[in-house]
Computed example of a mutant assay.
Amino acid sequence: MRALLWVAALLVAAPAGAQMPPAARALMQHMSKGTRAAKVGDWATYRFDGGGLRVFYWRTAVVGEEKDKSGRDAVWVELEAGTHPAMKSPLMQMRMLVAREGDEIRYDAISRLFIGGPFDRPQEYSKEALEHVLKEEKDAQAQAQQARAADAKAPAPAGITPVIRSGKEQRLMTLAGTVTAVPVEVVFKGTVIKRIWVSREIPLMNLVKMEIPGIAHSMEVVEYGIDAKPRMVMPPPDAPKVRLEYADSVLPDLGAAADAEAAQKDSEDTP
């Protein structure tokens, strides 16, 4: 299922009219050789490179499981973002209780959410604030889906047909070591627009690497494992919660925070 999601992501990124050879088939053959459902302890850290000083890291980990308030099986997922791969002084921490259905973690079914920033102690979102944020996210996804549907109906210019293709399963060297992976590419007039490497060996998202050569942007796994422990310091039960009026302002602008930190470092290094 996750492999098909990555193919779907490539389709979204491809221009209207893109042709789909057996990319999904090659990917699913690779994933069928040993992929497993996400388990408590799974974690992965990625490096995002947006060019220049725009480099930061993102860590996802499954750190616990319990029943949610609706009686569904659910897992605690922690997310961290920062400018250091070990998440020293993270710019953002998030912990959420997410329902799971079979092998899939349902990120559209969040029942509890905690947010912490570089200068703020973690706080839980109130029921109203969480519902507000989830509704805004659902509305944004619906608008994006409508836009993609409109683009899909638009005919491609004559003689211009983008293609999605996959390569053979191979060993790929990454920042996290060498893994077995399959590349899937969007190609336009002989030029690779986007390339995604997918591997059954990487937990959670199965994503190894993503490249956008034209603008020199990339995302690559740095570390991964199966021994994750909770890292967010949880607030006491009687601590104030994030209310509706602050729900939109609590999540930090990670890009702006990374730029500010880089600018401060440059000023300190300048004699």
Rank of each mutant, 00 (worst) to 15 (best):
A23W: 11
A23F: 06
R25P: 00
L27M: 15
L27R: 05
L27K: 05
M28K: 10
M28P: 02
S32H: 12
S32F: 01
S32Y: 07
K33H: 14
K33M: 12
G34Y: 12
G34Q: 10
G34W: 05
R36S: 13
R36E: 06
A37Q: 05
A37Y: 05
V40P: 01
G41Q: 10
G41N: 07
W43A: 01
W43Y: 15
T45Q: 07
T45S: 12
R47S: 12
R47D: 00
R47F: 00
D49M: 03
D49Q: 03
D49A: 11
D49Y: 04
G50P: 06
G52H: 14
L53A: 13
L53W: 11
L53P: 11
R54W: 07
R54Q: 12
V55Q: 03
V55E: 01
V55M: 02
F56T: 00
W58T: 09
W58I: 12
R59T: 13
T60R: 14
T60L: 13
V62A: 10
V63E: 06
G64Y: 05
E65A: 14
K67G: 02
D68H: 09
S70F: 13
G71Q: 03
R72N: 14
D73K: 12
D73I: 08
A74C: 10
A74Y: 13
V75N: 03
V77T: 11
E78I: 05
E78W: 07
L79W: 11
E80Y: 08
E80A: 12
A81E: 12
A81D: 02
A81F: 08
G82P: 09
H84K: 07
P85Y: 04
P85A: 09
P85G: 06
P85E: 04
A86S: 14
A86M: 11
M87Y: 06
K88I: 08
S89E: 12
S89R: 15
P90N: 06
P90D: 09
L91I: 14
Q93H: 05
Q93D: 00
R95H: 05
L97M: 00
L97D: 03
A99W: 04
A99I: 07
A99S: 12
A99C: 09
R100E: 11
R100Q: 15
E101P: 00
E101Q: 13
G102L: 03
G102F: 08
G102S: 08
D103N: 14
D103T: 09
R106L: 05
R106A: 12
R106W: 01
R106Y: 01
Y107A: 02
Y107K: 01
D108G: 15
I110Y: 06
I110S: 00
S111E: 11
S111C: 03
S111R: 10
R112W: 02
R112N: 07
L113M: 11
F114G: 02
F114L: 15
I115Y: 07
I115K: 03
I115F: 11
I115M: 15
G116T: 07
G117K: 12
G117S: 13
G117H: 10
P118M: 08
P122I: 11
Q123R: 15
Q123Y: 01
E124L: 08
E124I: 01
E124V: 02
Y125I: 05
Y125K: 05
A129W: 00
L130E: 00
L130H: 02
L130N: 00
E131R: 09
E131A: 14
E131F: 01
E131H: 02
V133P: 02
L134P: 00
L134D: 00
L134V: 04
K135H: 06
K135Y: 09
E136G: 06
